[in-house]
Every structure is written in structure tokens, then in C-alpha cells.
Amino acid sequence: MSETPDNQHTHSASDPAPRAKALDSLLVEKGLLASDAVDVLVEAYETDIGPMNGSKVVARAWTDSEYKQRLLKNGTDAIEELGYGGLEGSKIVVLENTDTVHNMVVCTLCSCYPWPVLGLPPNWYKSLEYRAHAVSQPRAVLKEFGLELDELVEIRVWDSTADVRYLVLPQRPAGTNDLSEEQLVALATRDSMVGVAKADSPALAS
């Protein structure tokens, strides 16, 4: 996979690495910054809190209709049933994609994102291009992600501005009746849970 450094707009800014290191060093020397607290945060969001959590929520909803009803009624509580919750997730609302409605999420002002189920947002979600264009040209933006939807499908763009955070429940892909909940987890991709893609089909995921 290709990695894009988080400096795509940089033209003249000085190298942030020694600056961050200088802040880290000085704050530690002054007894203001607990190094182990920083370690805990970095590790939590690198290894423990990410889209794999949301994928499990989606796979459960695909296989358990009662869970799905609870999830759509009160996302926060149903997500907590699976053990997920915390920072930037005090109220999570789940939006169901159907044959006639496609939901997608953006934060035009910054980077609001449901951390407990999706982790920290990817670069494209935080990019000026996505934030500027998603509300006014959603079909064009989705096309950039390779998703072309029929004009008959209503597109709902959720501009996440407040404490409410949104998770998209993508449609269960066709041809997955024989798959177990565990196998379905791999199909519920991060992009499908933000609403810029459909869930993967089994052929793609194998």
C-alpha cells in the first residue's frame, strides 16, 4: 500500500520532526509531559482502536436483525454492547444505506469522526478537497472513489459539526449468505463505513 506523508500541502514549512521532538524534550525536562501517557495514546490508536472495531459492529448488524434494530435506534449503546466507546464517541448515530438511500459523512470544519469505531481519520477525510467538495458535489466526489450511483438513489451527506458522530451501515454485499459473521468482518471496509464506497464483495476480499 502506498503511504502519503501528512505534508501534502507543504511548500515552505520547516521539517516538523525536529520541532515535535524539541517540544517533547523540553516538556519532559520541565516535568510537564508524561512520556508514558503519550505512549499509551499512540499505542491505543495504532493497535487497538480503528476501523476493525466498526467492521465487527457492521458484521453483527448484517447477521443479527435484532442487534441491527438496536444499533439503528441507539448507536452508542449498541456499539458499547460490543465493548467499544470512549473519546470522540459520546453519541454515535448509525445511518443505514439501502437500495434507495446512500449516506456519506464529512466534517467540513475540521475532522469530526467516530473514534471508538473507526479510529483516527485517514488523510483523505481530513483533506481540504474532501471537506470542501463533499457537501456540494457528493456524486463527483464518490466518483473519485470509484462509486457511481444511479440518479434515483438519494444521497445524504452528513456534515458532522457537533457531538454527534456518524457511522454508515453499508448494505450487505450480494452472494454472502454462506459467510459467517467473522468472514463478513473483512468486507466492511473503512471507506464503506464513512460512505464513500460500498462494502467489498467476497471476490475482492478473498
Binding site: 500500500m1 503511504e3 501528512d6 501534502q8 495504532e46 483523505w124 472513489f145
Partner: peptide, 17 residues
């Protein structure tokens, strides 16, 4: 949009984390 990676590291460089 310039980056469409389907998966990417939470932090791209240690200083970000």
C-alpha cells in the same frame, strides 16, 4: 482528492503520533 489509500497507518511518521 490526492490520497485514496484504503488502508493507511494511523500515523505516517513518528512525530505525528
Amino acid at each position: 482528492i490526492r490520497s485514496h489509500s484504503k488502508e493507511e497507518s494511523t500515523f505516517h511518521e513518528p512525530w505525528e503520533g
